[in-house]
């Protein structure tokens, strides 16, 4: 985004237009779509407003907010424009709303939501196949939160319900539309990621800690083993004999 040119006079037509856009976005408490902005301005001024005009105005507004240290920005979420406070002020605003803790979604909800978001429209059995677990609970939770809704029925036997994400999902995840979803990485890339092995080490440590048997009495000659064959220092690759098992 380009910074505002500081030499504009305050009554320049651009300024009036920017103010109108700003007023509309400010007054709306739902994401405000381009066409709503254009319609409202058109009704009053009779002028045609293009998408580019609005985008440019929003950019100028944001540049001005940044330059003057304002605590909000115009964001394009859930198919429209919204004014949102800057993340640096999350603490005080949260305190005002008396939210005890940051809202979090469990991993199972996020995984289910990811399957729906990327595969939509998708049936329940399809969701369950990807994760290998029943999706009833997660689906209900996601629908209760308004992130997911029934979008139709599949043409398959029994006409199963099709699920998809909502505008609220886009808004609450800071996405303009579905094309803003992060591009999933290739599997090879994920597997090669050093995070993969870091996480592995962490998993290992947790697993070992949780399965640590109580310290044996001093005179015990029993080996301190765990049922799950946890080897804390198993940084070595599987031994050849074990690997051969598989090809047996």
């Amino acid at each position: 985004m380009e910074p505002v040119s500081p030499d504009r006079v305050s009554d320049a037509p651009d300024d009036r237009f920017d103010q109108s856009v700003e007023a509309l976005i400010f007054a709306s408490d739902v994401p405000l779509r381009d066409e709503d902005v254009a319609r409202a301005i058109g009704e009053v001024t009779g002028a045609d407003t293009t998408l580019e005009d609005i985008v440019a105005a929003v950019e100028r507004l944001n540049a001005a907010y940044r330059a003057t240290g304002r605590a909000f920005r115009v964001e394009q979420w859930g198919g429209g424009y919204r004014l949102a406070t800057i993340p640096e002020q999350a603490g005080v605003v949260r305190a005002l709303f008396e939210q005890e803790a940051e809202k979090r979604l469990s991993r199972s909800l996020l995984e289910t939501l990811a399957v729906i978001a990327y595969k939509q429209p998708v049936t329940k059995p399809e969701i369950e196949h990807v994760r290998g677990v029943g999706a009833d609970y997660a689906l209900r939770q996601l629908m209760e939160r308004g992130f997911v809704d029934v979008v139709g029925r599949a043409d398959a036997i029994g006409r199963p319900l099709l699920y998809g994400t909502t505008d609220r999902f886009l808004d609450q995840f800071g996405l303009g539309d579905l094309s803003d979803l992060p591009t999933p990485r290739e599997v090879e890339e994920i597997l090669a990621d050093p995070r993969f092995s870091r996480e592995r080490a962490q998993l290992l440590a947790e697993w070992a800690a949780d399965n640590q048997p109580p310290p044996p009495p001093a005179d015990s000659s029993e080996p301190v083993g765990t049922r799950l064959r946890v080897v804390v220092s198993s940084d070595s690759p599987p031994t050849p004999s074990e690997a051969d098992d598989a090809d047996g």
Binding site: D29, W77, L83, A84, P87, A90, R94, Q172, F173, G174
Partner: peptide, 8 residues
């Protein structure tokens, strides 16, 4: 990240 932003 989004939950750190508050809208009107």
């Amino acid at each position: 990240e989004r939950q750190r932003r508050f809208t009107r």
